[in-house]
């Protein structure tokens, strides 16, 4: 956890690329997640990759890959949002699929709806062509207890 705390601080201060928060998570690399930043505004990218394909008749992205991408985006977003970072553990994740995820790059942005002492509520939106036409939206709760940060 100390390593992670230092890394989060380094990313915030511009001493380390945001991408280093992705690179330490094996599953995030498995999906191929990238982060782009404009100032402090983060956009998460799930690049077009064969290995994230689902339905063979369309072809469309696997809904699970898109959900995993959005969950990981929310975790990194929360880490950077908290004054004192604690490892967010997913309590629940609710996904609404609005459009087929086509075989192309997918983007996501996050909004912390409520950051409490122990629980955070995060909204995540994912799009491909236009931000205003999301392919999926999700809502998740994360547990932030100190106890878990030490685990």
């Amino acid at each position: 956890m100390d390593g992670l705390r230092d890394l989060v601080a380094a990313c915030r201060e511009g001493r380390a690329p945001y991408q280093s928060l992705v690179d330490r998570v094996p599953y995030a690399n498995f999906l191929g997640i990238e982060i782009t930043a404009r100032g402090e505004e983060l956009t998460f990218v799930l690049p077009q990759r064969d290995t994230n394909l689902g339905n063979p008749t369309l072809p469309a992205l696997h809904g699970g890959a898109v959900a995993g991408f959005m969950e990981q985006a929310a975790i990194i977003f929360l880490l950077l949002e908290m004054g004192e970072p604690r490892v967010p553990k997913t309590i629940d994740f609710t996904m609404d699929y609005l459009r087929a995820g086509l075989f192309r790059d997918t983007f996501a942005e996050c909004r912390v709806t409520r950051l409490g002492r122990r629980v955070a509520n995060v909204h995540i939106s994912a799009w491909q062509g236009r931000r205003a036409e999301p392919i999926a939206i999700a809502r998740a709760h994360f547990l932030l207890s100190e106890e878990n940060a030490e685990a």
Partner: peptide
């Protein structure tokens, strides 16, 4: 498929998929 490199726990996203 690990989500937390400090604990080796499976990522929630993989479970979701």
């Amino acid at each position: 498929l690990v989500g937390n490199p400090d604990t080796g726990v499976l990522h929630g996203g993989a479970v979701f998929a």
